[in-house]
Nucleic acid binder design. Structure first.
Lengths: 175, 175
DNA sequence: TAGGCAGCGTTATGAGATAACATAGTCCCC
DNA sequence: GGGGACTATGTTATCTCATAACGCTGCCTA
């Protein structure tokens, strides 16, 4: 993976340049909150946050950046779960379906959702300098996508909005 | 590839459900125009539309839909060009750099640009029913992306706007 | 005509994703 | 608590997409 300078493999990463929000914050705390929200959500919906699924979500939350499926798989395998690709893809697909994680197509990667709440239509901002990713509410963007779609008679089900560019830290040479 | 019902391999396709615009039109004519514009453009920029590159563009224009790199490669090989992946990827990368084609990340595919003119920030609408793709001017969407980015202090270089949904024909059961 | 460079071709390999099948847990009804 | 339906996890095998690395050729220019 060429998008960042290869972090020391295997450690728990709760900080670093590649944070999901560009602003500094308490990762452990926001991860814990997200996990609790996830549990409440699945209970409400009657779906199951099984051990692999839960662990996959934890992994994404701990890393706090976009991770490839195989990278998640490695960690799952290290924790005693299966070590074949479908194990990771199934867990990640579940999380994406439930809105607990997002797929970042530009990076062929997945990231835990950082915006609490039910239906939302997030936009992603990917820093090409440091690999950081920010998720922002995309309601306004979504509305403009819908408007363009309407002009074509097209009905939008899902929209991917992903922008590559430079985060504040990198632009100011702080990264 | 599971996204469409496998067209008869090797034919020149100038029609069919998977058109790039949802409205019916004269493919051969719009392809010819695009090719002429491409030639003018590269002349102006001092880059070279070499035989492989030109043929790759023709292939995309003829197919008039999104094509995987390997699919383009097959056609190139059939026309006597190299048969190894880099041949296709290099030609396609050139076309994308020059704005003559676009990469559709959701599909891991490429499509010829259907909107003449220089810098534009297109949005793509992908029908999950029939595989058709429409490219629409995305200036308004781009503006809303920029606005969201500004709130984060993020500078946007490139944005991918890709929406999956249903085209008019499929929604009305005409497809 | 020698050096430099862009472009094309190759081989080999890396990275991402899924189909298909077997086994095991869970729920629910009876 | 037995049996059927369903969900979930694991496997093997394979597929698609993408790129690294290297050599040759042909063109342009000094």
């Amino acid at each position: 993976m060429s998008r960042e300078p290869a972090p020391p493999a295997g450690g728990t990463e709760t900080g670093g340049a590649a944070s999901l929000a560009f602003a500094a914050h308490d990762h452990a705390r926001c991860a814990g909150g997200a996990l609790r929200r996830a549990e409440a959500l699945v209970a409400e919906r009657g779906v199951r946050l099984t051990p692999v699924r839960r662990r996959a979500l934890e992994i994404l939350l701990e890393a706090h950046r976009a991770m490839g499926a195989y990278e998640v798989l490695e960690r799952l395998a290290a924790d005693g779960f299966g070590r074949q690709p479908p194990v990771a893809y199934r867990a990640l697909d579940f999380l994406v379906e439930q809105g607990l994680a997002h797929r970042i197509r530009r990076l062929n990667a997945f990231a835990a959702c950082t915006l609490p709440g039910g239906a939302h239509s997030p936009a992603f901002f990917i820093c090409t300098g440091c690999g950081a990713i920010a998720e922002a509410p995309g309601e306004a963007i979504r509305a403009s996508v819908e408007a363009a779609a309407a002009a074509l008679g097209f009905t939008v089900e899902r929209a991917s909005i992903e922008a590559a560019g430079t985060c504040p830290a990198c632009r100011e040479g702080r990264a």
